[in-house]
Amino acid sequence: MQFETLAVHEGRDIDPTTGAVAPPIHLSTTFERDPDGGFSRGFEYIRDDNPNRRSLEACLSALEGGIATVAFPSGMAAISAAIEALRTSHEGALFVPRDVYFGMRALLTETEFGRKLDVVTVDMTDAAAVERATRDRKPGIIWVETPSNPLVSIVDIAAISAIARKHGAAVVVDNTWATPFLQRPLELGADVVVHSLTKYIGGHSDVMVGAAIVRKDGPHLVELRSIQRNKGLVPAPFDCWLALRGASSLAARMTVHCGSAMAIANFLQGHPAVTAVHYPGLPAHSGHEVAKRQMRDFGGMLSFEVRGGREEAMSVAAALKVFTRATSLGGNHSLIEHRASVEGPATMAPEGLLRAAIGLENVSDLIGDLRQALAAITE
């Protein structure tokens, strides 16, 4: 079946008791044992398993083309668990991108777990630089974020995966921005894919869930399941239900997100108040050719730099009426954010940069909103 069909049907069955097409929400924390003490219906206790979590995990495995999915209560929980699980079978340093997501950077610098890791920072957009870095430190895990946040850089997943295999390392790809509809990292050689389902897969800015999808069975899958169960890192049944609901419309929504983002990127590229547009759909983008090769479309996220700097960028964001000034992405609303002020002193975002998550509004309204907001600094 094609992606759109899998997204609607995988992990969902008609309810055998009522015939309901929408799956029921199973809030029970415990399940009845059989007279002989067994659990023939497959469920024992909510921390071990739950029907809604099982449905979500089955759907995500099908969409990413993995053998199994382990769901977590947030994207950061999935990221932490993936690193912890892979370290048990892949000794060596953790290679991370130079423009690593600031939440990941905080994990590595502000927690005891992160500070114990041997971290190597490298420009992941340059495969040769990654290979050179392996001469000084043996990689255990190579962490890929593509497109990156907020600079929207593109990493060649197949090239990085080939380097990892050569050195016995595992590759993890954060596929949150692309989603499995646009990009399938496991088919390009990655070992694990992580998601903040809070974003595009949830799709409505009303749920927080994360997931790790693995390409094949092995010690890291066993460890991920153990971390999920024994550390109690399990998402609530209703959150799983919401994420599964969101997955069913993912393809349709991503088509709109991508089309609108491309139109907005073209508009911004020609605006005199804008000095740079970071969007891989633009031929001038440094990662355009790689994105064309490994992605179905170019995504719903872009960032742009306003002429002037921080004050001008903040004034543009303040003048917007359709865009909402808020963190996050992947929902119905278009959001805009000054990333340098969010990320603080360690940010790599230029002071004039605004990150835009393009929502589902009419694109002409979004362009009109940007036009009127940018007019103030071109007068």
Rank of each mutant, 00 (worst) to 15 (best):
K166L: 12
L250N: 04
G42W: 08
A58N: 10
T275F: 00
T176Y: 02
A212W: 09
E64S: 07
S260I: 09
D156M: 05
A236K: 13
V193Y: 01
P237Y: 02
G66K: 00
H271R: 03
L353A: 14
A357S: 15
L107N: 05
V155Q: 01
N50I: 07
R355W: 14
S61N: 04
C258D: 15
A22Y: 01
E289N: 12
N175I: 07
I336A: 05
I79T: 14
G308P: 04
E131D: 12
Q294M: 11
A251G: 03
N362E: 15
P24W: 07
A169W: 00
R98Q: 15
R137Q: 13
A265Q: 09
F323N: 00
G331T: 07
V130R: 01
D217A: 15
E145S: 01
G38A: 13
L188V: 08
A375E: 14
P150L: 09
I213H: 06
Y200K: 14
T198V: 04
G11L: 02
C258K: 08
S286F: 11
I358T: 04
G270T: 08
L282V: 03
P180F: 09
A68C: 09
A251D: 09
V363L: 11
L27D: 10
G202R: 04
F72W: 08
M76P: 06
A313D: 00
V322F: 01
A93K: 03
E343I: 13
K292S: 14
G359Q: 08
D49K: 10
L151V: 10
A261M: 10
E64T: 12
P283W: 06
E223N: 11
G38C: 12
A58F: 01
R293N: 09
N149K: 12
A170R: 14
A243D: 07
A349R: 03
I14C: 09
I67Y: 08
G287Y: 04
T134S: 05
A273L: 01
L151C: 03
V120P: 05
I264D: 02
A313E: 00
I160R: 06
L329D: 05
G103F: 11
N50E: 09
T324H: 05
P283V: 08
P97L: 06
D136L: 14
G203L: 08
D48T: 14
D15M: 06
V120I: 13
V290L: 07
S334H: 05
E64W: 06
H220W: 15
G65M: 06
A133S: 12
A58Y: 03
F39I: 09
A7M: 05
A252H: 13
K292E: 14
S364N: 13
E379R: 13
L182P: 00
V277D: 01
L224C: 10
F304W: 11
D15W: 01
G299I: 12
I377H: 11
T29H: 11
L107W: 08
A263D: 08
H204L: 15
I83L: 14
V155A: 02
P16L: 04
G140K: 02
A158D: 07
G330I: 08
H257D: 05
Q228P: 05
L86D: 10
V172R: 06
V8L: 10
H271K: 01
G287D: 03
I201V: 15
A77S: 15
R87F: 10
E112L: 15
P16C: 07
T29E: 14
R87G: 12
D156V: 04
F238V: 15
E289S: 13
P97I: 08
A284I: 10
A291S: 12
V119H: 07
I227D: 13
